[in-house]
Design a protein around this nucleic acid. Sequence first.
DNA 1: TGAATAGTGTCTTTCAGACAATATGCC
DNA 2: GGCATATTGTCTGAAAGACACTATTCA
Lengths: 226, 226
Amino acid sequence: MMAIRSPQPAPAQNPAVTVDVLVFTIREDALQVALIKRGIEPFKGSWAIPGGFVLPHESLEEAAAREVREEAGVTDVFLEQLYTFGRPDRDPRCRTITVAYYALVPSVHIHLSASTDAAEASWFPVKRLPPLAFDHADILQTALERLKSKLEYSSIAYALLPERFRLSELQKVYEVILDRKLDKRNFRKRILSLDLLEATDQVDAGGAHRPARLYRFKERRIVSFD
Amino acid sequence: MMAIRSPQPAPAQNPAVTVDVLVFTIREDALQVALIKRGIEPFKGSWAIPGGFVLPHESLEEAAAREVREEAGVTDVFLEQLYTFGRPDRDPRCRTITVAYYALVPSVHIHLSASTDAAEASWFPVKRLPPLAFDHADILQTALERLKSKLEYSSIAYALLPERFRLSELQKVYEVILDRKLDKRNFRKRILSLDLLEATDQVDAGGAHRPARLYRFKERRIVSFD
DNA sequence: TGAATAGTGTCTTTCAGACAATATGCC
DNA sequence: GGCATATTGTCTGAAAGACACTATTCA
């Protein structure tokens, strides 16, 4: 069976396409996200997820990686496409479709840079966010859900930690993302049984207490379990 | 700390944005996908995933729903965004970014329609696909992985079945998507323990054998378990 | 009565979760 | 020796997976 439908012509003007990147890290025992304060209208003075146009020669992922590099000065970070947001009215200026990515950077000193159309850049704990521009609150919510669910069945946590870490640091990553306390014995039993980690022969240079053994991920890449 | 980076200006011309939709159904005990035979260059004569431009006034999801309606003549189907594909060279004509969706339609007679730039539309079992245009083989692969994983932890199977169905039909849905046989007793025990189904007082009008009880989903919407 | 599918129970293993005491290094 | 964190095991309940026979209807 065959029928003819009316064609949809190419629109007179294409929508603008941007890539927005949520850069997450763990700081001060909290999950934090990098935001910029907008220096131009619309939403001048509001905080927003950093992003920019996709250039003609680059892929979406390359555009996202460039954004992370410009924003946080880091390369080789975990970067994954999140979702594409395209409500017709999401940008009052013109039709804009944004492909959102999220990046995970290790909890070390990350130097945020403000871009030209941003007055300021800063980390915010995801539990204490300022009002966000555009539909960025939706995007952030989507990212937090993805992060929680991926943490449960994959090894993404490696991307938030330095190469060597204490098991208690790894547990803290799980706790701040899942937003609940975990039992130490059960956590260690489960995480070690996954066979993703190996103990190193080093211990940390901690404080006035028993030093902890340092572990590392056997592979510093995403592995799914379950 | 603050640094100034060079701005990325808006590109002289925006990329084209399309929505492609993988329409899946179960036919002849196989997972099948609707494809169109391209009537125009490039890839004239190749099979492709149906799609089209996003119109100025519609959201991405509305564009995808319109595509399903035009292609398969059905509304109210399960529809979910899959992934956005944007390799710079994926369309030889011009920079084109496609937001891929997938739809699940019940295994009843679906009347496929060819659009104007398609010579023909047809169902293909996903295990016997023709060569596909553009990067559509990648898109299909991504969809199959998503479908398998969502089947395991959500109730999407409802969208592939009529309102009332035999448990053996439901099991078949799982088997053809996961591409492996399942044990009948374990399958029934597990699926019934999820408390998503309810038995109706009807049995099917089957053949020369004991009739099967018909079940239905308590809620015809996606529910996640695990 | 034979063909075809429907329908059902037990056992074993694995995993998750509740739960508390001892060990070690540093000051 | 006191403090702060590290490290470790048992029990219980739930769920997954292996596995085979009886029931029912129709031709």
